[in-house]
């Protein structure tokens, strides 16, 4: 896989950083790729739009920051307004369907959305929204394998919540697969 830049955005408390961390851990530890994650720090990280930046590659990662994300996973309207213009040409945008209205989206962007909050609520815990998004992103992008992602979820979430998080992951993953059935190929394969 060539250098792939991923930005995950949302608001504080949505588990943005954790979902980026799990994705990076899945790639790095369980899929044996290279992964570099940069966290947004400082007062700005506590405010509204927060983000995790992740680079995944088969090659060593030199320049550590993302330049133009190939993939963006956005979970809030503000994150959409703030970050979506950075998407690389032909990039892929994954959004939370009920939280993000994709106004003025560039035509070159491939867009997929999922009602992740509703799914999370159905599972009884709104908090697992980020893991639903992670499952969704795993299915749509194929950046990391399903098993790698599940393994990373298992070791990254609080003890005792593994089953709930697996359910959330699968919900997102299955929804992604269903969406893709209408698609000729996995875009990032």
């Amino acid at each position: 896989m060539p250098r792939t830049e991923i930005k995950i955005g949302g608001f504080g408390g949505q588990g943005v950083i954790l979902s980026g961390y799990i994705l990076g851990r899945a790639a790095s530890i369980f899929d044996h790729k290279n992964a570099t994650m940069i966290q947004a720090f400082g007062p700005e990280a506590r405010g509204s739009a927060t983000s995790a930046q992740l680079i995944i590659s088969d090659e060593p990662i030199t320049y550590p920051y993302i330049v133009a994300p190939n993939v963006m996973v956005l979970m809030s309207q503000e994150a959409y307004s703030k970050f979506s213009p950075e998407l690389a040409p032909g990039g892929m945008l994954l959004t939370e369907e009920d939280l993000v209205a994709t106004h003025n989206l560039r035509s070159d962007v491939k867009h997929y959305s999922i009602p992740a909050t509703r799914f999370a609520e159905e599972l009884g815990k709104r908090l697992v929204l980020n893991i639903v998004m992670l499952g969704f992103a795993t299915a749509i992008t194929n950046i990391v394998g399903r098993e790698a992602a599940r393994n990373a979820v298992k070791v990254s979430v609080p003890k005792g919540t593994e089953e709930l998080n697996f359910a959330a992951f699968e919900k997102g993953y299955e929804y992604g697969l269903k969406l893709l059935k209408g698609e000729p190929e996995k875009v990032m394969a």
Partner: peptide, 10 residues
């Protein structure tokens, strides 16, 4: 430095 300190890798 901050970049290396806060950067997460394997």
């Amino acid at each position: 430095d901050e970049c290396v300190g806060h950067m997460i890798e394997r």
